[in-house]
Deep mutational scan, measured.
Amino acid sequence: MSIQHFRVALIPFFAAFCLPVFAHPETLVKVKDAEDQLGARVGYIELDLNSGKILESFRPEERFPMMSTFKVLLCGAVLSRVDAGQEQLGRRIHYSQNDLVEYSPVTEKHLTDGMTVRELCSAAITMSDNTAANLLLTTIGGPKELTAFLHNMGDHVTRLDRWEPELNEAIPNDERDTTMPAAMATTLRKLLTGELLTLASRQQLIDWMEADKVAGPLLRSALPAGWFIADKSGAGERGSRGIIAALGPDGKPSRIVVIYTTGSQATMDERNRQIAEIGASLIKHW
């Protein structure tokens, strides 16, 4: 067993022997301040990774656009098919120029040779490549099948209805392509620590998230040296922004954090800054 596999296998073990965790309302004060600064709703939840206990939450059962955070769930569904012998990570998928959609920095470079399922998941999570996500959605049967996968996990809230990039439209009061912070946090925890996926697939999923290259201005910008984070960000229309993450000190994750916002007129930089400040408060009061 590799060191990384050992780390993920012992996530519940280490967490069980940690000192009790206590909620700190100071972080919620910052979440509410972010709402004021952005002029928009902000949803927040913080779960203990081992027990699933909610440590703090704000608007945990209000719907927010998922945006690209759905790509972690998508690759979880792909990995479940791999575990069941219905898919192979090494299978190569070929596609054409007509398949390319807006923001496809990886797939646009491989029109000639195609990409493997493993490479597509890596591109979808680490670079948020939209064509990679659409190609992977095709392998599982489309958005409705991802929703069905989530329902089978016990998540009857999260739903995907459309493809990239239309799913980022974020129309107010439109339930399409949305989740709730509580539902997303619980589902992410199941994917990373539950028995739904094999140990190898859980490790692969967290490795992809740990290698995320496009979430630097968010929670990662607030992390002290030595902290662990595996995350996936999302951005959408109407001032929408979000991030889902597993993080913790001492090089291992111990909490799940989900943050979503929508309806702001603020710039992307300002949305990023507010999420980073929430992260800084979380870490300060850990």
Rank of each mutant, 00 (worst) to 15 (best):
Y95Q: 02
M1S: 01
A40P: 03
D99C: 06
I93G: 02
V29I: 14
D99K: 08
V82F: 07
R118A: 15
Y260C: 04
F17I: 11
A246R: 02
Q4R: 13
E175S: 12
I256D: 00
E35R: 03
G251D: 11
L167V: 13
A225C: 13
P105R: 05
N272R: 03
V101Y: 08
E102P: 15
Q203V: 13
T193A: 15
S57P: 02
A23S: 08
R271F: 04
E62F: 07
R118V: 10
T126W: 04
M180D: 10
L49G: 05
K109M: 15
G76N: 01
D33K: 14
R189K: 14
I243Y: 06
N152S: 14
H156L: 11
E87P: 02
D207W: 12
K284V: 10
D250I: 09
L191V: 09
L47K: 04
E166F: 14
I243W: 04
N168Y: 03
S104W: 01
I278C: 04
E210I: 15
M184P: 00
S128G: 03
I229A: 05
R81Y: 08
G114V: 03
L74K: 01
R59F: 03
N272K: 02
T193M: 14
M209G: 03
E210S: 10
M127L: 11
L38C: 07
N152C: 11
V29S: 10
D129W: 00
A183N: 09
R92V: 15
S233W: 02
T107N: 03
F22C: 14
E270Y: 08
E175L: 14
A185I: 03
L205H: 01
N98M: 11
R220E: 03
H285S: 10
W227E: 01
E56Q: 11
I206L: 15
Q86V: 14
S57L: 09
G43R: 00
L191S: 04
K144F: 13
W163N: 11
R81A: 10
M127K: 08
G236Q: 02
Y44F: 12
G52A: 07
S201G: 10
Q4G: 08
N168R: 03
V82N: 06
N173V: 10
G239A: 04
A225V: 14
L74C: 05
T198C: 10
V101G: 07
Q4W: 08
P105V: 07
L137N: 04
A222N: 14
L167I: 13
V72C: 07
E102M: 12
R238L: 10
E62H: 08
E166N: 13
S281K: 14
V8T: 15
A16E: 05
R81T: 07
R162I: 02
V31Q: 01
I243T: 04
P249Y: 05
G154Y: 05
G76K: 00
T262D: 07
P143S: 06
Q37I: 12
L191K: 01
G52L: 05
L74H: 01
G142H: 04
P12W: 12
L38E: 06
T147V: 11
M115W: 02
S80K: 14
D174E: 08
S264A: 09
W227D: 00
I3K: 14
L49D: 02
M67F: 04
T179I: 01
D33A: 15
E169W: 14
S201H: 15
I171P: 08
D269C: 11
F64E: 01
D161S: 07
R241G: 05
R220A: 04
E164D: 01
